[in-house]
Amino acid sequence: MSEKGLIPPHGGKLVNLIGSEARRRELEVAARKMPRIKLPEREQCDLELLAVGAMSPLTTFMDDADFHGVCERMRLASGLVWSMPVTCSVDKATADRIDLGQPVALTDERDRTLAVLTVEEKYLHDKKLEAERAYGTADEKHPGVAVVYAQGDVCLSGPLIVLTPRHDPPFAKYRLTPAQTRAVFAERGWRTVVAFQTRNPIHRAHEYITKCALEVCDGLLIHPLVGQTQEGDIPADVRMRCYEALLGNYYCPKNTLLAVWPAAMRYAGPREAILHALVRRNYGCTHFIVGRDHAGVGTYYGTYDAQRIFDEFDPAEIGITPLRFENTFWCRK
């Protein structure tokens, strides 16, 4: 535990990639003359998480060594556990126009500058490797794999300075950074905190397992994903009204906190469960709920594969304790 009694971030230090006010003003002007790369939604979500330290120890989009280490061994080049690639990719024609050492402006869909990336490495994006190893399937019908196949053929990496993590972010009052959730936990005196990840409204079984988790933890972080999801998932604004109603009527406000997680859903099952746990450690959580078919989609993964994958690691390497729940349902007998 840290000096405030909170769990240390993954890698030991909480990353902050947002430049100083003076540096951001300077780069905002300079970026107007730089090559501009419009980030797809997944990369925009990843950039925001990189910026605020949610993906600590990552300090930029992955280079070739980290990409292959993660795909093949679930480890960064440093040896730290990391389960999913985090890349910035472009088409080959765009990559060919960028010189090594050249800064480029990363923008949103409205061409508003988000960050400046100084390109120190360009490498081929092995999409087949990423699909087969990180997602466990090369099937283009898998929604996460479909996103990978639509990405560029060349990945870029290098020093990253963020100007604005997200322009006009929705759910702003709930969009707490890891530093902010940690401050809330410290203020409330929570030494053990369990995180609940969801991309759905909380139903009765969810309420049951979260309240069971509160029996062994001081506090509960309800942390719904509000970034990119597949067509057919319940919209985030609808879900947020459900969460607010539940917190106002069914959970104790003294030991419950609602904050949003502005991530893109990858639907990668077991591998994504590890990612979700590591990220929640960065937010200051000591425990993480892993239920039935966590982060799964369709029939690509076994019911409890996302729980079993934690057994492949020394618990100290993950640093956050998984709370494993079996299928929970209402019994009328």
Rank of each mutant, 00 (worst) to 15 (best):
Thr286Trp: 13
His294Ala: 07
Lys4His: 15
His142Ile: 05
Gly227Lys: 09
Thr118Lys: 14
Lys13Leu: 07
Arg204Asp: 13
Ala77Ile: 13
His167Thr: 06
Arg308Pro: 13
Val216Phe: 06
Trp261His: 14
Ala183Ile: 13
Glu130Asp: 04
Thr192Ala: 01
Ala245His: 11
Leu176Tyr: 05
Glu121Ile: 06
Thr164His: 14
Thr118Leu: 12
Val86Ser: 03
Phe185Met: 10
Cys155Asp: 06
Leu50Ala: 00
Gly144Phe: 03
Ile234Glu: 15
Asp293Cys: 08
Val238Met: 15
Arg332Ala: 13
Phe325Asp: 11
Ala195Thr: 12
Ala213Leu: 11
Ala263Asp: 09
Cys155Met: 08
Thr286Leu: 09
Ala172Tyr: 10
Leu247Cys: 03
Pro143Arg: 01
Pro169Gln: 14
Cys242Asn: 15
Glu48Trp: 05
Asp237His: 13
Glu326Met: 11
Ile37Arg: 02
Leu47Gly: 04
Ile222Tyr: 02
Lys173Glu: 11
Ser2Asp: 15
Thr177Cys: 03
Asp314Ala: 10
Ala236Gly: 09
Val184Cys: 04
Arg324Phe: 05
Arg292Ile: 01
Val226Gln: 02
Leu156Ile: 08
Asp63Ala: 10
Trp261Cys: 06
Thr94Gly: 04
Met55Val: 08
Gly219Gln: 05
Leu160Trp: 00
Ala22Thr: 08
Val238Ser: 12
Thr60Leu: 07
Trp261Arg: 15
Ala95Arg: 05
Lys92Val: 10
Arg199Thr: 04
Leu176Lys: 10
Lys4Thr: 08
Gly219Tyr: 00
Arg110Trp: 12
Thr113Asp: 03
Gly302Gln: 14
Asn249Pro: 04
Gly69His: 00
